[in-house]
Simulated scan of single mutants.
Amino acid sequence: MVLFCIVYAMYTRPDTRFAASSAILYFPLGIVNLILVQGSFYWLNCLWRVRQKKALKTQRIAPIYKRLKVLDLILLASYIPIWFLTFRENTINNAVIGILLWLFAIIEFINYFYYRLSYYAMGGLSLQIIRPFRLLFTGKAAKSQIAKEILLYKKKYRK
């Protein structure tokens, strides 16, 4: 996540780094970072649960992530008008990189809030790329851990 910010700062010129036209790049970069931070906090909380330290239980964390899911979805959808409004002021490279960052944010959003998209190859040396998407499109993908917690919360703790 920090690497994305460093690469962005190195890629852009100082005079255009935070110009309004750069929203085509830094808005999806911000969304990706936000989703990755949310996922990091979730897994940190899970680690604390395993280590039996002070951690949030499902009845506390599920409503938080249910709201974050809606916020992320709104941010992802709001990029579409931003892209169209700033497209003319940008180069084709910026537009393409912005779309790629946005697609990466969508993949991470699906990975954290809907279906597990990270599967390891034999021996755990690399991530698989084709298998998760095949499982997703055939409807056989496993629910993500956050999605499971939200479902558990809806079934068990909600009145």
Rank of each mutant, 00 (worst) to 15 (best):
M1G: 12
V2H: 12
A9R: 09
A9S: 01
Y11D: 03
D15M: 12
R17S: 05
A20F: 10
Y26W: 15
P28Y: 11
L29M: 09
I31C: 10
I31A: 08
I31Q: 10
N33R: 09
L34S: 03
L34H: 06
I35Y: 02
G39D: 09
F41W: 13
W43V: 03
L44W: 13
C46P: 01
W48P: 00
W48N: 12
Q52D: 14
Q52H: 13
K54I: 11
K57W: 11
T58I: 15
Q59C: 15
R60D: 14
I61V: 15
A62I: 10
R67H: 11
K69W: 05
L71S: 10
L71Y: 09
L75W: 12
L76I: 10
L76Q: 05
A77G: 11
A77H: 08
S78G: 13
S78V: 02
W83E: 06
W83H: 12
T86A: 13
F87K: 12
E89N: 11
E89M: 14
I92P: 02
I92F: 15
A95N: 14
I97K: 00
G98Q: 10
I99A: 09
L101I: 01
L101G: 03
W102V: 01
W102I: 04
A105C: 11
I106M: 08
E108K: 03
I110F: 11
N111W: 04
Y115R: 03
Y115V: 00
R116P: 03
L117C: 06
Y120F: 08
G124F: 06
S126I: 09
Q128L: 14
I130G: 05
F133W: 11
F137C: 07
K140E: 08
A142E: 12
A142N: 04
K143G: 00
S144D: 02
Q145C: 06
A147L: 03
L151G: 01
Y153P: 01
K159V: 14
